[in-house]
Nucleic acid binder design. Structure first.
Lengths: 233, 233
DNA sequence: GTGACACATACGTCGTACTTTTTGTTCCCG
DNA sequence: CGGGAACAAAAAGTACGACGTATGTGTCAC
């Protein structure tokens, strides 16, 4: 699931990134390129490329004569979808999931409000379609199908906002929703109230009602936060 | 200002990143590693490392037998501070500045509200100090000093929110404010109303009043957006 | 104890050679 | 004339070895 050996680089990057963001290799610990090359049985070239990428994510810092140092958590590029995936797969998933959900609760209402103003007819149509899809898959253990519609739904809202920064948060939301469904144990069907709210949000956007769209999205966010409180440690 | 020749890698990365995000090398155009190596007079190794980093930012895609292709704008990691800096220095600065300011207007009110609940005494103290610093530098063409206090002020609010995702947006805000002061032609002293709002925000946080903090921050954001409307093409 | 100097070390850069994958072309057969 | 299979070229992917360079550390003399 993690990597299908589509290149040495990817494998080493994924492994190292996961190890760092999951807490082994704590901040301050040093790695040596030669050792890494030995450990993964690859050339130093590959390791160096990986280190450079990790460096661009501010996960590590490479200095002469000292080695590759793991940087403190506060400097990491936590908006990088790759980093998010690593952290969500790692140990402090609950904390991460909460941070991301709070972020969503700040962004998505505003995005929905903008979407109600700017959404095209096509976007409204697909939004409604996805909402109906969520209704259709909301019962009977069709979690995967529901997840797909849910992700698509929120992505459309974010795209329809017309703001590029919001739109690019679609991947983050997708990671959160997928993480919630897969990692969190989710035996039961989704909350019927949440499904209804999505349908009503689609309506509000279609009718061009920014205030309603914002209010409904806030309700969805509150529900998501509450859900986390119930299930988290 | 762009690069202090602290390594070949940095120089090539900065140059290429800027060229791509500024629109020359439009999406779809292909670059060859050998050509790049020739052009920058560096080894293929260096170019490959740069390409890998650019790839991790989703600015380019490297495929065998075809070369390094510039990816469409929608896929770029626009939350990477490096990318933001490049785009802000490039051609479509106005659009970018607007997107980022809208993002701020969504995030910062919520962050301020949380900060009013969670800020420590030390954070409150520094916040007040910075607000006073802004007052002190608000007249008489002390733009650089004002900018420094402004950045620090917003960074404290974001940090005090206690949410990691908000905190990490400090760099983004810093880039926006710096971009506004430096690139935008800013002859005049900052808006006195804005300065007052910052002082009042510091008070609201210190007094633990989330509603007021949120409301005041929204006003600051509205002012910033309005300022853009006045000065933008 | 302090300062300067030398040394060891691990990253930084380079050049080359070889491998792998993709793509475009050619050529044969139906 | 059309389609498919074999082939060839191109460009990235990987490996290896060498040397450059900065920099932490230890030593030595004062």
């Amino acid at each position: 699931m993690t990597t299908q050996s589509q290149g040495l680089h990817t494998h080493v990057l994924d492994t190292l990134g996961l190890e760092i963001s999951s807490g082994q290799c704590p901040p301050g610990s040093v790695l040596r390129t030669d050792e890494l090359a030995q450990r993964f049985d690859v050339s130093r070239t590959v390791v160096r490329e990986v280190v450079r990428v990790l460096e661009s994510m501010h996960l590590v810092e490479s200095r002469r004569r000292v080695g590759v140092t793991v940087r403190p958590t506060e400097t990491w590029n936590v908006y990088d979808p790759q980093v998010i995936r690593w952290r969500l797969a790692g140990s402090d998933r609950p904390r991460q999931l909460r941070s991301l959900t709070v972020l969503r609760s700040a962004i998505e209402p505003v995005a929905a409000s903008l979407a109600a103003r700017h959404a095209t007819a096509a976007q409204c149509a697909e939004l409604t379609e996805r909402a109906l899809g969520m209704v259709a898959t909301s019962r009977g253990q069709q979690l995967e199908g529901y997840l797909e519609h849910d992700i698509a739904f929120h992505r459309i809202v974010l795209n329809a906002s017309g703001n590029e920064m919001f739109a690019r948060l679609g991947d983050v939301v997708a990671e959160v929703l997928a993480g919630r469904t897969h990692h969190q144990v989710m035996f039961e069907d989704p909350d019927p109230a949440a499904v209804t709210l999505h349908v009503r949000l689609a309506e509000a956007v279609r009718e061009g009602d920014p205030e309603a769209a914002e209010r409904i999205t806030k309700e969805i966010a509150v529900g998501a936060l509450h859900e986390l409180d119930v299930l988290a440690p």
